[in-house]
Design a protein around this nucleic acid. Structure first.
Lengths: 243, 243
DNA sequence: CGCTCAAGGATTTTCGAAAATCACCGAGAT
DNA sequence: ATCTCGGTGATTTTCGAAAATCCTTGAGCG
């Protein structure tokens, strides 16, 4: 056994199976900052600022931006650089529609195909979700990021067994975009005690019905769950129009 | 008027509204070569070969590859470079399923929302489709590429008025991947006179029913149309398994 | 005034080479 | 014989600077 090699690796001696590249790291950081709303929609992404802020050269940067452009997180316009993708109510409506269709199909397929591992993963991610700090407390960015991550993981676990990597890939993209809308608009109602409790109840019921293989029930709860934040964000758009 | 400026531009003095970058050109060429099957699935994309073959430096290349990776046309594995995405029967089945669902919804929405421009564009693209050289004759690559382009344009025109850019974006991606399967597998039946005639009939009927706003009829024809090539490719997979 | 045009600086895009990493191959040990 | 280890060439990834392009500003002209 080669002790030296093991020592150079992090964690319990398990090396990265796929050693990551700098471009991928920048891509992930940029995506996180766009999703969180830290990078405001429409603002230009200037090379110098990006270089100093993400501590990297232009090559990894452009590679990351190209990927983000393909996923519609940024827009690339000719030879005028990149911008954070704009948001709009029309775009939001499109996202909601197509996500609803794809997610319903995926959940149904997952309930049909899921095995014990799938069930166990749902329980595990649900547990971590309810253990996360509620939006009321822990208003700092790191806590919010962790809460969002666990929320994503839970919903991903529900449909993970749907059997279609394409469906999962599209859904991840759509969900990330919708998360951006949710966090940018950040309806005041979203942090109220009543809202938080209702969402928590929905998560529990969604988890239970899914594992019980109650397709109709699970779909109904999922729809209600999505409709709740959907309405809240639509209200924000309406309010913005008035002012 | 500045004659010098106009002279430097191509065509009838109409400059590019969005002057394209080298990276985008390489991206498009690579995508075309992957879609056509010229770049065989699984083969590694080596920098030196790409540089000489597409006559460009590494920066535009990696940018193009990053975009292609985001669209699953190539796979990026850690620090071991890029490869042309693999194909598999399971992947093909996934593509067919999700494309069917999305395309049906898009066609229905387009029929509901389409205006005169939409109808006119369908007629125009249909006309160019039937004028294209049939697969039997014109076996050279350029003719095939043009035929495929017209085929794509026609089907795009049908759903262009669906009102959802997201749906169109996903569908374009899915259709490109499926085109790759079709062209790589290239079932012998696909060039037989009977097959070609049936496909042509379906295109005509699809065009007519769509413009007549016959939702059910159009969807039925579309499903039959898709099922035809779907079966042909599945047969190819089955034949490959035997050998 | 309003408009066109050119110069200058700012920014993006691309190239070429350096640095880092990987993959192959053969020597030596068990 | 098989396996591990180290070295070497090939390849990828990243950097820094050059080239190309864009945008602003202000002068000159109608």
């Amino acid at each position: 056994m080669n002790v030296t090699k093991l020592a150079t690796r992090s964690g319990g001696g398990v090396g990265d199976p796929q050693p990551t590249t700098l471009a991928v790291k920048v891509y992930e950081q940029l995506r996180r900052d766009i999703r969180s709303g830290a990078l405001v929609p429409g603002s230009p992404l200037r090379t110098e600022w990006l270089k100093s802020h993400y501590e990297t050269g232009v090559s990894p940067l452009r590679e990351a931006l190209a990927r983000l452009a393909a996923e519609s997180f940024v827009t690339a316009q000719g030879k005028q650089g990149f911008r954070v993708a704009e948001i709009s109510e029309a775009d939001f409506d499109e996202l909601v529609d197509i996500r609803r269709a794809l997610e319903a199909g995926a959940l149904e397929a997952a309930i049909a195909n899921g095995d014990d591992d799938w069930e166990a993963e749902i329980l595990a991610t649900y547990h971590k979700l309810i253990k996360a700090a509620s939006p009321a407390q822990g208003a700092d960015a790191a806590a919010e990021e962790e809460r969002e991550r666990r929320h994503r993981r839970f919903h991903e676990a529900l449909i993970a067994a749907c059997g279609s990597r394409w469906q999962l890939r599209f859904l991840e993209n759509l969900t990330s975009h919708l998360e951006r809308y949710r966090r940018i608009m950040r309806p005041a109602s979203q942090v109220s005690a009543g809202f938080v409790k209702d969402v928590a109840d929905e998560h529990r019921e969604l988890m239970e019905r899914t594992i019980q293989r109650d397709v109709k029930g699970a779909l109904k709860v999922l729809d209600a769950h999505r409709l709740r934040t959907y309405s809240a964000i639509k209200n924000q758009f309406a309010n913005a129009d008035e002012s």
